[in-house]
Design a protein around this nucleic acid. Structure first.
Length: 169
DNA sequence: GCCAACGTTGGC
DNA sequence: GCCAACGTTGGC
């Protein structure tokens, strides 16, 4: 249980993590043991560097679903791993995320963190709604050509998304 | 399914 | 180090 009083008293960063829900959805996360799962398969250096260097335990994560009819943010998660760690799927030949370069070196060059579902949104926050909001005009998600699957969300944008999404704590 | 935008690879 | 070719992402 997260007390509302803690929301403003704890210093945390906010992130947006993308996934394709047919692959791994917010519902999948919420239904996992302890509502927690490894966020793996990130194969982009910029996204990896955020995970490795800046994402911290206790940070909040907006779970965004792409490649669907109505893309948007569907729930809130929290980073629960103490430290980022080597993504084991890079070394697993049967994984769709297998990375031959990592395998040949015998060490994963990619990084994972553990995310816990802490509240689904009562209202999903759709991409078209974000686009329609003047307050969100400069949100990184809307930047032309942005394909990053992990990126920081500045506090004013995070507050807006939370206000729209009404996470069900 | 299309395709713009971007990232990665590899020959030179 | 350059850059053409190729692969991927993700909205539409």
């Amino acid at each position: 249980m997260y007390l509302l009083a803690t929301v403003d008293s704890i210093s945390r960063s906010y992130w947006l993590f993308k996934s394709e829900p047919q692959e791994f959805s917010y519902a999948d996360l919420a239904g996992a043991p302890d509502s927690t799962a490894r966020w793996d398969g990130i194969r982009n250096y910029q996204a990896r560097n955020f995970l490795r260097d800046e994402v911290k335990k206790g940070d909040w994560v907006f779970i965004y679903h792409s490649s669907i009819k109505e893309p948007g943010v569907f729930g809130l998660g929290e980073i629960v791993s103490e430290q980022p760690y080597a993504d084991p799927t890079a070394l697993d030949a049967r994984s769709p995320y297998f990375d031959p370069v990592s395998f040949n070196k015998g060490i994963s060059r990619w990084v994972s963190v553990d995310v816990k579902a802490i509240a689904p949104f009562k209202n999903s926050v759709l991409l078209r709604e974000i686009k329609a909001s003047p307050a969100m005009k400069d949100f990184l998600l809307l930047k032309k050509g942005n394909r990053l699957s992990v990126f920081p969300v500045m506090e004013n944008y995070a507050k807006w998304i939370l206000a729209q999404g009404k996470p069900d704590f």
